[in-house]
Design a protein around this nucleic acid. Structure first.
Length: 487
RNA sequence: GGCGCAUUCGUCUAGCGGCCUAGGACGCGUCCCUCUCAAGGACGAGAUCACCGGUUCGAAUCCGGUAUGCGCUACCA
């Protein structure tokens, strides 16, 4: 009885997809994979004026990056090719012609200027805006007249003047619209391209879409679509309107909200598995506690019934936390492989490329648990490469005493020469030194940390020293002695 | 303005009539661990469930209204 599940992600190439767009794609994909149905991608490129170069690639890249593979669509084709609306124009023309013929639509000759003037007038008079249906009641003679003058026309849908349009939203239940609140919207523009509503309905029909899972912003236009399905004699799909993702200011996510596109998150060092997990959880939940999901667990457990109805704000802090969790869970090899692009880009340019792999394998484990994004890794490991350190005297002087510190640093240098250069021996030796100097370990270690790393915050001191290598460490202490003397 | 959708800790959410003196997570605070920072562990602050009525023995959960927020209101999608 139930039709096979066929869902689609239908972006328009008018900009780079943000997390809200991709979340919609994700829910469609999850529903298809969960049910064993098909996931299609269809490009709604009917607005030639607003098409943004590069956005198609960005859309497909985003999908690929988080692993949403499509069964039909661009690049892979499919039984309903082509999957670009700009290449399916005859279908829309046929549908529009059929609607005109059956009396469900009509040609409208109103000019943009008249429409504009009408809107201004409506605003002035505080009348609900909308097309005034001037051309709806034209006689055949008047139409012939316009045609013979070569007047440009659009095709508008003839919305019933009364009655209600009712549909059942899977998430929101029954939604009722009064037809009198709808105006006669445009189906086909003067340039011969369809408007979203027409193209969308026609394609969803021919592509046998079973469920339309789209953002809530479309809820208000759904009655138009239902009316078209009825007029065309198509069977409507199941509708489910997903909650919006809001920016920090609680308005619909848009360009204004900064790093909102998915590829920007990639460039900022977030892992695709983080984004997949996080986006899934923004608007969907399994139970009261589970937060971490593998791709397979999401596929297994996803259900439309558990999709939230309320719009949510994208919580960057939680994203950071989750990315840290995933980062820490990576194997060292995987971690290095993913960090490499960021290291190559951000580490000092005078460090030879390719980066020495042994050296990497030495220090990366020390910062592995400390980074929350891949982009932080070069920052955290910077001092493993940068030999010229700038050091504030206050951070290196012990008991704020130059002579004492100098004295201790000479001892440190002696010790370093003498002791086996491994973590345990170094720690044992320097703890003993601190004790013999009646210093707390921290007093000595923090000063040394500054000498070695140029920072007051670093991974554990002796492991850092070992990873860095004896000669480099000795050099840094020599430099430090110079600095202390000169301070 | 009209129409629609929504409303539980700062944020994401659990809850689908009694298990709720409302649970989890992020963030925040305190403590433990500790050479610093993380990570980890423990504890804690934080929501009169938007408000007002109603239904019911009993309501965060059902109904009505109000308020607020958001969305739509193009020859954009």
């Amino acid at each position: 009885m139930d039709k096979p599940v066929r869902v689609r992600y239908a972006p328009s190439p008018t900009g780079f997809p943000h997390v809200g767009n991709i979340r919609t794609a994700l829910f469609n994909w999850l529903w298809a994979r969960h049910t064993g149905g098909k996931f299609l991608v269809r490009i709604e490129d009917t607005d030639t004026a607003r098409t943004v170069p590069g956005s198609l690639e960005s859309i497909l890249d985003s999908l690929r990056w988080i692993g949403l593979d499509w069964d039909e669509g661009p690049e892979v084709g499919g039984p309903h090719s082509p999957y670009f609306q700009s290449q399916r124009l005859p279908l829309y023309h046929q549908a529009a012609a059929a609607l005109v013929k059956s009396g469900h639509a009509y040609k409208c000759y109103c000019t943009a200027e008249r429409l504009e003037a009408m809107r201004i007038e409506q605003q002035k008079n505080k009348v609900p805006p909308g097309y005034d249906r001037k051309c709806r009641s034209m006689s055949d003679r008047e139409r012939q007249e316009m045609e013979s003058q070569g007047a440009k026309s659009v095709i508008r849908f003839k919305v019933p003047l009364e009655g209600q349009t009712v549909f059942n939203d899977l998430l929101r239940g029954e939604v009722v619209f009064e037809n009198r609140n709808l105006d006669d919207f445009v189906l086909l523009k003067t340039d011969g391209f369809p408007v979203y509503h027409l193209a969308n309905v026609v394609d969803d029909h021919w592509m046998q879409i079973s469920h339309v899972l789209r953002a809530e912003e479309w809820l208000s236009s759904t009655p138009r679509h239902i009316l078209m399905y009825q007029a065309l004699g198509y069977e409507p799909p199941v509708f489910a309107h997903m909650p919006l993702i809001l920016g920090p200011d609680r308005s619909k996510l848009s360009k204004r909200h900064g790093a909102a596109t998915l590829t920007e998150y990639r460039d900022q060092g977030y892992l695709p598995e983080t984004m997949l997990n996080f986006l899934a959880l923004l608007g969907w939940s399994l139970d009261e506690k589970t937060e971490l999901f593998t791709r397979q667990q999401l596929v297994d457990n996803f259900s439309l019934e558990r999709v939230s109805r309320t719009a949510g704000i994208f919580n960057r802090e939680k994203l950071d936390w989750m990315n840290g969790v995933y980062l820490r869970g990576l194997s060292l090899d995987d971690y290095i492989r993913r960090a490499l692009p960021f290291l190559n880009k951000e580490l000092p340019p005078d460090v030879p490329r390719p980066l020495d792999e042994n050296y990497l394998r030495g220090w990366i484990p020390l910062i592995k648990d400390r980074a929350r994004t891949l982009a932080e890794i070069p920052q955290l490991g910077w001092f493993f490469y940068q030999d010229k350190l700038s050091i504030a005297p206050a951070d290196i002087l012990i008991k704020n005493n130059q002579t004492l510190t100098l004295d201790i640093y000479h001892k440190i240098e002696d010790t370093l020469e003498r002791v086996p250069f491994n973590k345990d021996d170094l720690e044992k030796e320097f703890r003993a030194m601190a004790a013999s100097l009646t210093l707390k370990p921290g007093e000595l270690f923090n000063s040394m940390r500054t000498a070695v790393t140029g920072r007051t915050v670093s991974p554990p001191l002796f492991e850092t020293m070992v990873a860095m290598g004896k000669s480099r460490v000795l050099k840094r202490f020599q430099d430090a002695v110079q600095k202390i003397s000169g301070s």
